[in-house]
Design a binder for these strands. Structure first.
Length: 562
RNA sequence: UGCCCGAUGGUGUAACUGGCAACACGUCUGACUCUGAAUCAGAAGAGUCCAGGUUCGACCCCUGGUCGGGCAACCA
C-alpha cells in the first residue's frame, strides 16, 4: 500500500532518482542556473532558481551560477550584480562556482575551428534576410546556401579574418552544416558565430565574433560537467541541436542532458522581460523594484520573504504543461510566513476620533500587548492609552446592520488590549461626515483583568496624542484582468488592463513604539494586513508598503448581502 | 500541409509506473477567538479531452481524432 509519508516526486525528481539508481555520471548531480544578464530577475526565475538549486540540495549535488553572456550588445554588468544579489537573498549559494559563458570563448572558438576543418561548418557571406529566406518555413524545406560548398581552406581563412575584425557587423557568419530539409528549423544550418564589434562586459574588445546560444550552451554545460541542464519548454525543440553539437565535438561518453519544464505564469501579472521593461521605461511603475512588479527586487521591497517565495515555488510544482497560477497562492504563502514572524502593531489608516468621556483627562495608561500571539517568545510591547483615540472610520456605522460587529450608536466593542467601550453619541459636520464619536468605557473590563464580559467586536486603535504619522502605500494588483494579455480589440495591449488603483498613498496614524523601525522591517497592522518599512523612509518620517491584506472574509460577507 | 510538446475538480500538482482519483490553494458550513486573521472540525466540487483497442482491470499501454502551446533572431 501507499505510504502516506513518501511525498510524491515531480518528473525531474523521478528522472534524477532513476539516474542515481543507474549510477549515471557516478551518481553526481550538477545543475546550473543560467540567466542572461540583460534584465532583472522575476518570480518566474525564482521558480527556476528554486528548482535548480533545490534539486541539487535534495540530491547531494551542486548548482552552478552561469551567466549566459554571449551577446555583448544586450548585456551589462549592472544586471549581473542585481542577479547575484537576488539569488543570494532567495537563500541560495553557488559558492565558488560562478561562471560565465564568456569564460569559454577560447574553447568554443577552438571547437568551431575543428568543425570548420572537418568540413562541418562554413562561412556564409549572405545577409540575415537572405539566410532567413533560404531557411524556409516549418512546413517546407529550406534551400542550401551557395557558400555551403566553400573549401576548408577558404573557410578557415575567412573565419580567421572574421575573428581578426576584417569584416563589418552582419556581413558574414559561421554556420554549421546541418540539414536544410530538417523539419526542425533549428537544424537548418544554424548560425554558430556572428560578427559584433562590441565591447563585452567581461572580455572587453578581445572578440568581435560571438557564439550563438545554441552553439554555446551545451558546450558550456559539458565543460562544467553539468548532468541535468534544466530549461523552459521553448527550448525543447533546440535539444536535438544541443545534442548534435556535442556529438560532433566530444568524444567522451559523458553528456549533459537537457530537460524542459513549463515556465511559471501568474494571474493578474505579466512576466515577459519586454513587458516589464515597458512598464518601467514608460513610467507605469517607478522602477524595476517598484513593489507592484513581479521582480524579485520588487517583491523584496514589497515585503515578501525568501521563505514565502521558496515555499510558493514548492507548492506550485513542476510539470510540462502550460499553467497559470492563481496569485492568491503567492499571497497565501506570504501571509503564512508573515503570520509567524511579523510583530503586531496598531495602525489606523483612515482615522476618526473617539473621545472616551468618562476617562480621566490627562490620564495615560501604559498597556502591555503581545508582540505576536503566534510566538509568545517575542514578549510584549508598550502601547499608551489616553482619553482620545483614533479608530478606523469604517469601524463605525451610524445605522449598522445586525451582522456588523463593530461600533454604532449604543453598541459596545472592545478596544483591543484595553477596555470595552460603548458609543453614546457622535457628531457630524454639515456634509454629514462623522467628526467625533463619544463613548464611555467600563473600567472593569481591562484586558487581562479576568473580566468575563464579552463583546462581539474588537477594534484596533491608537492614542490620539501619542500616535505618529506615517506614509502608507497601499498596493494592489497591477492589473485588473486575471489575464492581462486578454484585450477586447486587436490594437490594444496589456496596458489597458492596468489597475488605476494599484497604488494609493495615504497618511496613517501608527502606534509610537515603532518610530525607530528600519527599512524592510515587517509588521502586521492588526486587522488590516502586513506592512513593510520602505527604503524611502527618512529620519522623521516612516513610509510603509502594504505587502498584502489579511484574508478578508468580512468583505466577502458584506458583498454577498449587498 | 511539417515537426515537437501537452491535456486529471475553479487553479496547480499527484496517483507506488495497470488495481476503481489524492494533496494544496480557493469555495462553503460550523467551532473557537480580545485580530471578522490565525487555528480546529467538516462539506461540496473531477470519474481523468473524445472514440476505439489491449486487459479480469486503463488517468497510466496501443491506434485514430479533437483542442491548446511551441518551432521560420546574426536573441536567450
Amino acid at each position: 500500500m501507499k505510504s502516506p509519508e513518501t511525498k510524491s516526486l515531480n518528473f525531474l525528481e523521478n528522472i534524477i532518482e532513476e539516474d542515481i539508481r543507474n549510477n549515471k555520471n557516478s551518481g553526481i548531480i550538477l545543475t546550473r542556473f543560467p540567466p542572461e544578464p540583460n534584465g532583472y530577475l522575476h518570480i518566474g526565475h525564482a521558480k527556476s532558481i528554486c528548482l535548480n538549486f533545490g534539486l541539487a540540495q535534495k540530491y547531494n549535488g551542486k548548482c552552478n551560477l552561469r551567466f549566459d553572456d554571449t551577446n555583448p550588445t544586450k548585456e551589462e554588468e549592472e544586471y549581473v550584480n542585481s542577479i547575484m544579489e537576488d539569488i543570494r537573498w532567495l537563500g541560495f549559494d553557488w559558492e565558488n562556482r560562478l561562471y560565465y559563458a564568456s569564460d569559454y570563448f577560447d574553447q568554443l572558438y577552438e571547437w568551431a575551428l575543428k568543425m570548420v576543418k572537418e568540413g562541418k561548418a562554413y562561412v556564409d557571406d549572405q545577409s540575415s534576410e537572405i539566410i532567413s529566406e533560404q531557411r524556409g518555413v516549418p512546413t517546407r524545406p529550406g534551400i542550401e546556401s551557395s557558400y555551403r560548398k566553400r573549401t576548408v581552406t577558404e573557410n578557415l581563412d575567412l573565419f580567421e579574418r572574421m575573428k581578426k575584425g576584417e569584416f563589418p557587423d552582419g556581413t558574414r557568419v559561421l554556420r554549421a552544416k546541418g540539414d536544410m530539409s530538417s523539419p526542425n528549423m533549428h537544424m537548418r544550418d544554424p548560425v554558430m558565430y556572428r560578427i559584433m564589434h562590441a565591447t563585452h562586459h567581461r572580455t572587453g574588445n578581445k572578440w568581435c565574433i560571438y557564439p550563438m546560444y545554441d552553439y554555446a550552451h551545451g558546450q558550456s554545460d559539458y565543460l562544467e560537467g553539468i548532468t541535468h541542464s534544466i530549461c523552459t519548454l521553448e527550448f525543447e525543440i533546440h535539444r536535438p541541436l544541443y545534442e548534435w553539437f556535442l556529438d560532433n565535438l566530444i568524444e567522451t561518453e559523458y553528456r549533459p542532458r537537457q530537460y524542459e519544464f513549463a515556465r511559471l505564469n501568474l494571474s493578474y501579472t505579466v512576466m515577459s522581460k519586454r513587458k516589464l521593461l515597458e512598464l518601467v521605461k514608460d513610467g507605469y511603475v517607478k522602477g524595476w523594484d517598484d513593489p507592484r512588479m513581479p521582480t524579485i527586487s520588487g517583491m523584496r521591497r514589497r515585503g515578501y520573504t525568501p521563505e514565502a517565495i521558496r515555499n510558493f515555488a514548492e507548492k506550485v510544482g513542476v510539470a510540462k504543461r502550460e499553467n497559470v497560477i492563481d496569485v492568491g497562492l503567492l499571497e497565501f504563502t506570504v501571509r503564512e510566513h508573515l503570520n509567524k514572524i511579523a510583530p503586531r502593531i496598531f495602525a489606523v489608516l483612515d482615522p476618526v476620533k473617539v473621545i472616551i468621556t468618562n476617562y480621566p483627562e490627562g490620564k495615560i495608561e501604559n498597556l502591555h500587548l503581545e508582540v505576536n500571539p503566534e510566538d509568545p517568545e517575542l514578549g510584549y510591547r508598550d502601547v499608551p492609552l489616553s482619553r482620545e483615540v483614533y479608530i478606523e472610520k469604517e469601524d463605525f456605522m451610524e445605522d449598522p446592520p445586525s451582522k456588523f460587529f463593530r461600533l454604532g450608536p449604543g453598541r459596545e466593542v472592545r478596544l483591543k488590549g484595553a477596555y470595552i467601550i460603548r458609543c453614546e453619541s457622535f457628531k457630524k459636520d454639515d456634509a454629514g461626515n462623522i467628526q467625533e464619536i463619544y463613548c464611555t468605557y467600563d473600567p472593569e473590563t481591562k484586558s487581562g483583568s479576568g473580566s468575563q464580559k464579552k463583546v462581539k467586536g474588537t477594534l484596533h486603535w491608537v492614542s490620539a496624542k501619542h500616535a505618529i504619522d506615517a506614509e502608507i502605500r497601499l498596493y494592489d494588483r497591477l492589473f485588473i484582468n486575471e489575464f492581462p494579455d486578454e484585450v477586447e480589440q486587436e490594437e490594444l495591449d496589456f496596458k489597458v488592463n492596468l489597475n488605476p488603483g494599484s497604488l494609493k498613498v495615504i497618511t496613517g496614524k501608527i502606534e509610537p513604539g515603532v518610530k525607530d523601525a528600519k527599512p524592510s522591517d515587517k509588521f502586521q497592522f492588526q486587522r488590516l494586513g502586513y506592512f513593510c518599512v520602505d527604503s524611502d523612509s527618512t529620519e522623521g518620517k516612516l513610509v510603509f508598503n502594504r505587502t498584502v491584506t489579511l484574508k478578508e472574509t468580512w468583505t466577502k460577507l458584506k458583498d454577498k448581502t449587498d
